[in-house]
Nucleic acid binder design. Structure first.
Length: 368
DNA sequence: ACACTACCTGG
DNA sequence: CAGGTAGTG
């Protein structure tokens, strides 16, 4: 049974929020048509082309008591964050932010379950979204609780396309929820390797054990509300969790809106644009440098810098790449030149008077 | 503190 | 090479 929730496209664009790399539990069936697994529910989300204000949803099991709606609202931070206000504020404050953001409206950070988020991002290292999504699907099917069957059009390759054009093949996809700590505890390294997790298999097994020893879900909950530095320090103790993954977990599941995950791409952009203090080029990421780049973002965007980061880099997906690549480059360059940005509400980071755009002269290639 | 590398797998 | 990390000099 279909129901609907009032939320404008500009507050939540399914494409820009659900499959931008912050979570891996959603599948795009068509534009504005997605399916995913959220808690105990299998969810279908849809927007009509002629309706900007309503989001339609259907779940299995049916949401007869509104339990899903509560869960979903918390997931998208419906009551707590208005992204249009953030867009407006940064657009006003920072030249060209608007230019970028106008191409990628409705980007939100979702508030995920920290346990699922942690395992997901351990899988994300040195990996791409498509495979991460596939790996986690396998993990759910192997260790999670069964929810339901869903009929889906089967993926066709080019050669067989002709014959299947008339009546597209349907396949049954079995939907399972994400395993609990106890459920995933049963997985062995060999098992996970066999399932295609590669060298991450060991990290998962060890981290699951560590998480359990620390108290599981209760440990994660105890991290909420703590400052980012503290949260990151705790998370980094897990095997397979470094700064970047820790920041992803903090931002996407533990309410650290000021967390700025610095991946290789952000690192390279920051370097070229002189986000980094001093003129000396550094070939590799260090703890110090990592924090420095994050601080540069926090100084410019304030206590929700992680959201700004997410909006700016959500556009790095193929669908947007060409459209905004140029405007983004200019924009980020512009941002470094902005004065007085530390006045932004809740602006964090230390003021640094002598900081300014410094073109790095001899930027050698990062990778060969 | 920083540099460098191995590491699973597949597009 | 891909939205990294642990381990080693």
């Amino acid at each position: 049974m279909w129901k609907s929730l009032v939320i404008h496209r500009k507050e939540l664009a399914l494409q820009n929020t659900l499959v931008n790399g912050q979570c891996f539990n959603w599948k795009k069936l068509a534009p504005d048509h997605f399916q995913g697994i959220l808690g105990d529910f299998f969810v279908t989300l849809k927007r009509a082309a002629d309706n900007d204000t309503h989001l339609h949803y259907m779940t299995i099991p049916d949401d007869s008591d509104g339990k899903f709606l509560t869960l979903f609202k918390r997931y998208i931070q419906y009551d707590t964050v208005k992204v249009q206000e953030l867009y407006a504020e940064w657009s006003l404050r920072l030249k060209h932010f608007k230019e970028i953001a106008s191409h990628i409206e409705g980007v939100r950070c979702v508030r995920q379950d920290p346990w699922e988020c942690t395992i997901s991002f351990i899988c994300s290292q040195n990996n791409h979204i498509k495979r991460i999504t596939a790996m986690l699907e396998v993990m759910r099917q192997q260790y999670g609780q069964y929810i339901c069957d869903v009929e889906e059009p089967v993926e066709t390759d080019a050669s067989s396309k002709e014959e299947e054009k008339k009546e597209p093949l349907k396949a049954i996809r079995k939907i399972y929820r994400f395993p609990t700590v106890d459920e995933l505890k049963k997985a062995t390294e060999a098992e996970l390797r066999g399932l295609g997790f590669g060298y991450r298999a060991k990290f998962i097994v060890q981290s699951v054990k560590m998480i359990e020893e620390k108290g599981g879900d209760k440990w994660f909950e105890s991290l909420r509300g703590k400052p980012l530095e503290k949260v990151r320090a705790e998370l980094v103790t897990l095997m397979g969790v470094g700064n970047k993954v820790a920041d992803c977990i903090a931002l996407f599941s533990l309410d650290c809106a000021d967390s700025v995950p610095v991946d290789t791409h952000v690192f390279q952009i920051a370097q070229k644009l002189g986000y980094i203090k001093g003129l000396k080029f550094q070939a590799s990421m260090t703890d110090k440098l990592y924090v420095e780049i994050g601080d540069a973002f926090r100084k410019r965007f304030g206590d929700k810098a992680g959201w700004a980061h997410q909006i700016l880099f959500a556009g790095d997906l193929d669908s947007f790449k060409e459209v905004i690549a140029e405007s983004k480059k200019r924009s980020l360059g512009e941002i470094t030149k902005e004065e007085n940005v530390s006045e932004i509400k809740g602006g964090a980071g230390k003021a640094n008077p002598e900081e300014g755009p410094k073109q790095i002269q001899n930027v050698k290639r990062l990778k060969k």
